[in-house]
Design a protein around this nucleic acid. Structure first.
Length: 678
RNA sequence: GCCGGCGUAGCUCAGCUGGUAGAGCACCUGAUUUGUAAUCAGGUGGUCGGGGGUUCGAGUCCCUCCGCCGGCACCA
């Protein structure tokens, strides 16, 4: 007897093993048709797989609001992709085809790369295969049979994968039509269940087994959804994400640019640099408040120091060098060795620790050309870098304090969804197990003390110590790794840092490498995308535009602009001859958070008509009231920031706003009252 | 670095099988004094990413270098 307990608590008894398909058919024809798979004691099984023992079961259908549905649909679609490719290009070998976020891919081995036209053909064939509604049949094969089968087919990759599977594991294959693929499953009952809500997205090269020493395969990416409507929604989502691409907004909002002569190194324009400097000044103030000292170290340092630190050996190929006076200098790729040099000046006592040394040091790294990506991956960058020299006992309190500072800073920027990856000892590492035990223990305890959600990232620590990696989630759900904290026992040793302990002995300090924003360039990019360019008031390069409706208001408008600037706000004055609708549009496209319109009435009554970006509402306020309100909002405030991030984004293009002609000169010199960059 | 795609005016893009470069917006000039997302008219603007080759003739074809885009690999 097999007793199956259904989700509603009812129990069905069978004399012997039954399949999910049998059960679904017994319950009703509708369910039988809709069934995709069956959950057996929480595990998802194929409908064709016999259930031989009592179990709690639930039929999975496409309508279920459950990630499993997508897992099945996407993996089925990957098999359909492989079948289509084998039908169209029989000489192609199949390799692996896992699911990824929002879709799947399949890697193929073939001499000729796929063309975009091939992709169209393949997708057409896939749609046919779906219509054929071929049953997907699970079979368990004996290992040698499986290897022999795939070798006979010329599928050397598949044979290699099977050979690598642990002994004793069932080798399951799935058959659909003439196509047989090694696969763990589970799958839906037939290709038709996938429906037409899928699309092939792109072709790319990918190394076999992810190793650049191996041959390159052809990877086809696809996406698959429950139906065409969901697919359409997904494609719309991609388009929306594209609109907030910081590279596009950087151009549209005149923040920065890149050019061939300095690939991977941003040219910051006045507005972009204003934003950058706000971040830098903000962090500088926070660090100062948290007991850090700031230093500045040379851009060029003789290679001997990099040899000593070990960087030359590991990363020499990725360092820019220059020769002078028969010596080789490297542009610094990081600040830490230089900070140790400062630490080593004079004798340090345990009383000097912890010593928190910060530097906004510009670093250069020769990143591989294919890695460059706007501000997110550059060759010249500045971190909000600091090194905390401390004793082992101080690791925990210092880490805790750092985590608190970091979360607080993130909150100010509007990021409240943060998770932390904890990367522990890698296989190849320096330091004894005892030291690692202590370092990992201290780091973990501190992270937990700071109430962080920890995700384990086993074996991914630096060779010198464990690390925390702080990942924040942006307004549209994308994750960005920004902050980091690494415990380092190695560099102080290599570069000879010491302190005198209470007992008079010489000891090695521990070094905590840490950054909150990471690279300022990258964080600026993240912020632009998070806010879709609509920065909250305190971050907006131009915070307010004072615009006249008619020239009668010009003198008063100039006064309003002056008052805003006197209140510390970055304001522009637009007294051009265009219509108010034109000015509102232009300044809105430029994503200026506040537009203060001045007409005859406002001038007479000493008021302003305030319009906020993203809203059509206008509010007539006394000038003093508007000043007070904007001034208050320009202060850092977490809640306001979060609210600003949620403002919906409407697409724009070509917002290269400049001052209208009559006032051009005046405005250009008054874009900002922040003299820091002049 | 590897695989694929792409590179035409400041931006977005058109330019069929090779016949000597075009639109919209932007910009400039003039007119318009306007009440909350585009006022009208006229005008300027490109050695078609760089170099080389094939051809009577190359934006269109070939080679090569550079850059960008999408992945992969890398990321101290």
């Amino acid at each position: 007897m097999v007793a199956l307990t259904l989700p509603d608590g009812k129990v069905r008894n069978y004399p012997g093993p039954v399949t999910g398909a049998d059960l679904a058919r017994d319950i009703g024809p509708g369910l039988a048709k809709a069934a995709l798979a069956i959950r057996v004691n929480g595990k998802v099984w194929d409908l064709s797989r016999p259930i031989a023992e009592d179990a709690t079961v639930a039929i999975v259908t496409k309508k279920d609001d459950d990630a499993t549905v997508y897992d099945i649909i996407r993996h089925d679609t990957a098999h359909i992709l492989a079948e289509a490719v084998k039908e169209l290009y029989p000489e192609t070998q199949v390799t692996i085809g896992p699911n990824v976020e929002d879709g799947f891919y399949y890697d193929f081995a073939r001499k000729e790369p796929f063309t975009p036209e091939d992709l169209v053909r393949i997708e057409e064939r896939m749609r046919e295969i779906v219509k054929r509604n071929e049953p997907l049949v699970r079979e368990v094969w004996e290992r040698n049979k499986a290897v022999a089968f795939f070798e006979a087919q010329g599928e050397k990759y598949k044979a290699e994968i099977i050979a690598g599977l642990p002994a004793g594991e069932d080798i399951s294959v799935y058959r659909q039509g003439k196509f047989v693929d090694l696969c763990r499953g589970p799958h839906g009952p037939a290709t038709g269940h996938v429906g037409q809500g899928f699309k092939l997205m792109k072709i790319a090269g990918a190394y076999w087994r992810g190793d650049s020493k191996n041959e390159m395969l052809q990877r086809v990416y696809g996406t698959a959804w429950r139906d065409e409507k969901e697919l359409a929604a997904y494609l719309t989502r991609l388009e929306e994400a594209e609109k907030r691409d910081h590279r596009r907004l950087g151009r549209e909002m005149d923040l920065f640019h890149f050019q061939e002569e300095a690939a991977g190194m941003p040219f910051w324009h006045p507005k972009g640099w204003t934003l950058y400097r706000i971040l830098e000044d903000f962090i500088r103030a926070r660090l100062k408040h948290s007991g850090y000292v700031e230093v500045h170290t040379p851009q060029l340092i003789d290679r001997s120091l990099w040899e000593q630190s070990g960087h030359w050996e590991k990363f020499g190929q990725n360092m820019y060098t220059t020769e002078s006076e028969e010596r080789v200098f490297a542009l610094k790729p990081m600040n830490c060795p230089a900070h140790i040099q400062i630490y080593k000046q004079g004798i340090k006592s345990y009383r000097d620790l912890p010593l928190r040394m910060a530097e906004f040091g510009c670093c250069h790294r020769y990143e591989p050309s294919g890695a460059l990506h706007g501000l997110m991956r550059v060759r010249a960058f500045t971190q909000d870098d600091a090194h905390i020299f401390c004793t082992e006992e101080q690791i925990t309190p210092e880490t805790k304090a750092f985590c608190e500072l970091l979360l607080d800073v993130y909150k100010d920027f509007g990021f409240t969804d943060v998770h932390v990856k904890f990367s522990d000892r890698p296989k190849v590492r320096a330091g004894t197990d005892d030291v690692w035990d202590r370092a990992e223990g201290a780091l973990k305890a501190a992270a937990e003390a700071a109430s962080l959600k920890l995700m384990l990232n086993p074996g991914e620590g630096a060779f010198y110590g464990p690390k925390l990696e702080f990942v924040l989630r942006d307004a549209i759900g994308r994750d960005w790794q920004c902050g980091t904290l690494q415990v380092d026992f190695v560099l102080p040793e290599r570069l000879g840092a010491q302190y005198t302990a209470e007992d008079g002995t010489r000891q090695r300090p521990v070094m905590l490498h840490r950054a909150i924003l990471g690279s300022l360039e990258r964080f600026t990019g993240v912020l632009i995308e998070h806010y879709a360019g609509r920065m909250p008031l305190w971050l907006a390069p131009v915070q307010a535009a004072v615009v006249t409706i008619t020239s009668e208001g010009a003198a008063y408008a100039a006064e309003v602009a002056e008052r805003l600037k006197a209140a510390g706000l970055r304001a522009v004055l637009d007294t051009g001859a265009e219509k108010i609708t034109y000015k509102v549009r232009e300044h809105s496209l430029a994503k200026v958070p506040a537009i203060l319109a001045i007409g005859k009435r406002e001038a007479a009554e000493r008021t302003v008509s305030l319009r906020r970006l993203g809203s059509e509402r206008q509010e007539v306020l006394a000038l003093e009231e508007a000043l007070a309100r904007l001034g208050a909002e320009a202060q850092v405030g977490g809640q306001r920031l979060a609210a600003a991030a949620e403002q919906d984004f409407s697409g724009t293009r070509g917002a290269q706003i400049r001052a209208p002609k009559q006032t051009r000169e005046r405005i250009d010199s008054e874009t900002t009252n922040d003299d820091a960059h002049s």
